[in-house]
Design a protein around this nucleic acid. Structure first.
Lengths: 126, 126
DNA sequence: ACTCTTTTTAGAACAATTCTAAAAGGAGGC
DNA sequence: GCCTCCTTTTAGAATTGTTCTAAAAAGAGT
């Protein structure tokens, strides 16, 4: 494992777990100031391919990277834009079972109000 | 309802049901050659707001518009890129029930091989 | 040291969508 | 028939996150 790839992985692992490429870039840049965004993308793709992390595409075009590669669902906070984990049990099995088409995989993003925003919801008039 | 808006809706209604903006543009342009893509987007937004159609965002950035506004799920064919309807029963209820976060709404796209591609799958070495 | 492959860089390119400001169109009142 | 107001349309630029390209740099193995 190459230095900068390791740095990208380390930044992600030491984070809350769901970062966007530009945020990872910002953080890795503190250790490697001459780092470039393309390198972050290169390494994120490589790490995703190798199964170290997971790439979560959202419909808004702002993709997230997840330090936890094992399958689980996600929810996007409509207030703060943060991506959090969501527990839906073994949804994959259920989708396979119920769907009237073969399910190779799926993209699911719930829209929610995260606990942080919910507790402070008066501030933002939700 | 204004002429061009009606034309956009009519093109969508007379289609298989899941078109992308540029395809709608191409089709409407046959009747209104001076039509512009921005107008298609304007009208698609208006029609979506008014509940005539549904806007389906995909993670690939290629959004679809659905002539059927009532809730149902979708599957994207990994071979031909077509979006088809998928029946999963009342998934919304299930997600609300199972999720450990409040579910305001959700984006779900299954990945599948559509019947057309499945029947001709040898041609494309799937 | 030499070669081969991988990684990194810099910056351009991309693609779908959105924005902006101006022009055109249409409806209703007078 | 004209005026005013509001909506729709146009043209084209801007946006945004991501991907591509070609060249430079770095590493590994011999």
């Amino acid at each position: 494992m190459v230095q900068k790839r390791a740095a990208v992985l380390e930044v992600l692992r030491s984070s809350e777990g769901h970062l966007q490429a530009d945020e990872i870039f910002r953080r890795v840049k503190q250790y490697y100031p001459n780092m470039v965004l393309a390198t972050v993308y290169n390494n994120l793709h490589a790490l995703t391919n190798d199964g170290y992390i997971r790439h979560i595409k959202t419909a808004t075009g702002a993709d997230f990277y997840d330090k936890t590669p094992t399958p689980h669902e996600h929810a996007l906070c409509v207030n703060c834009g943060k991506l959090i984990d969501a527990d839906l049990g073994d949804l994959a099995a259920l989708l396979h079972e119920r769907a009237d088409v073969p399910v190779l995989s799926y993209d699911l993003i719930l829209h929610t109000v995260c606990p942080d925003c919910d507790s402070g919801c008066n501030e933002n008039n939700i």
